[in-house]
Write a protein that binds this DNA or RNA. Structure first.
Lengths: 210, 210
DNA sequence: CCGGTTTGCGTGACGTTGTAAATTTATGCC
DNA sequence: GGCATAAATTTACAACGTCACGCAAACCGG
């Protein structure tokens, strides 16, 4: 039925394709996934996706935005499970590491995909911003207390980098055997915890990431 | 002169091609460099490199090994310029960050290239091992002193990750404006320095990375 | 109710990639 | 000096992202 194609039809198809793209990209990496596979997965001819997206790049951006949101949800769920601020921070750190190590390609899709002009995809920028805010949740001052002194923006990024560094090294095969990412993160965050201003809490305990 | 082709001829050609590959890969990334460009750069026809290398992957491995060595040399030079151990560590950290930020694609070529079977390329493994040792130079105990207590292997990796994390975030465009990699690294290493066992020295002062 | 226009989709094709196979070229040896 | 042979080039192929055409189905003015 060629003629119609309501806005919701369009949205429906986009959703279906983005879902498939996120799954495939997060499993094999974007380079390894072909437009033809993608089209095949949702049961259309190779060129049909081009009616709904400009090109592969745009599909990638949409899939990455989805990845961001899924990741943010994971962290928020962990955050919600905590009762004290310290516990929240610990749970979020654990969730972060577990997500990255269990879904390496999804993690790379989010944080290690070179997409030169991310600005061209506002949804992606928005999703990234949300994830960034989520990740610094634990460094927000408790409601009612003024976070004096410490530069919370900086501290948030410090903890973030302290997780990201070991994770990236391990995903690249540079951390092995006894000195794996969890171990390094444990040492790193403990050191930060003992010496960074009190506003910051530890991000990860030495617990195994299953 | 088709008939001969001494071992040194072979080595000569391999050198020339690896040189070109390292330059091109480190400038544009491996995906963006084509076999035909590569062949063109060294002035041969597209298929000639295949007589000297199995495939692009093998050339990439060789170029990465070169990158490792160049990187290690850079760090060693910085190390040699220091007079005290603290100064050596600081200079190496600065050199590390400067290298990564000035040659992002070279840095990625080394530490962020997914080459599933690195084990198939012994030179690459060797170069990686050398670089790894170089990077933990500053954490070695001073000759004559026994580095008791602290797990130096772990501490080396902790500092490494503390540089790698912020750098990767910045290269992915996730650190901006006032909170750039140098800033985050500065905070991170200072925190480590004040709380990690005394065997570890700071890896980077807050100096700008030019 | 009906033909023309419009619109969604599939098909086929193009240029580019990495690389295999065939072909040309140029030497060393008898 | 001609031939075997090894190096290099040329040609060829499958797969990729994407362009351009063409078919077919639905809406719409008469």
């Amino acid at each position: 039925m060629p003629r119609p194609l309501s806005d919701e039809d369009i949205e429906k198809f986009r959703e279906r394709l983005i879902d498939a793209a996120e799954r495939l990209f997060a499993e094999h990496g974007p380079e390894a996934v072909t437009m033809r596979q993608l089209a095949d997965t949702v049961g259309v001819s190779p060129m049909t996706p081009y009616r709904y997206f400009k090109d592969k790049e745009e599909i990638l951006a949409a899939a990455r935005a989805r990845g961001y949101e899924r990741f943010a949800q994971t962290l928020e769920a962990a955050h919600a499970r905590g009762r004290t601020r310290a516990e929240q921070a610990e749970l979020m750190g654990e969730a972060y590491v577990r997500f990255a190590l269990q879904h390496p390609n999804a993690y790379r899709l989010i944080f290690d995909t070179r997409q030169p002009n991310e600005a061209d995809y506002p949804e992606l920028a928005r999703a990234g911003e949300r994830a960034r805010r989520t990740m610094t949740l634990y460094v927000e001052p408790p409601p009612g207390a003024q976070g004096e002194g410490a530069d919370r923006e900086l501290i948030g990024r410090v903890y973030w980098a302290a997780l990201h560094g070991p994770i990236m090294l391990q995903l690249a095969g540079k951390l092995e055997a006894p000195y794996d990412a969890v171990r390094v993160i444990s040492a790193l965050t403990r050191a930060l915890w003992t010496s960074l201003p009190a506003a910051a809490e530890p991000a990860l305990a030495p617990a195994p990431a299953t």
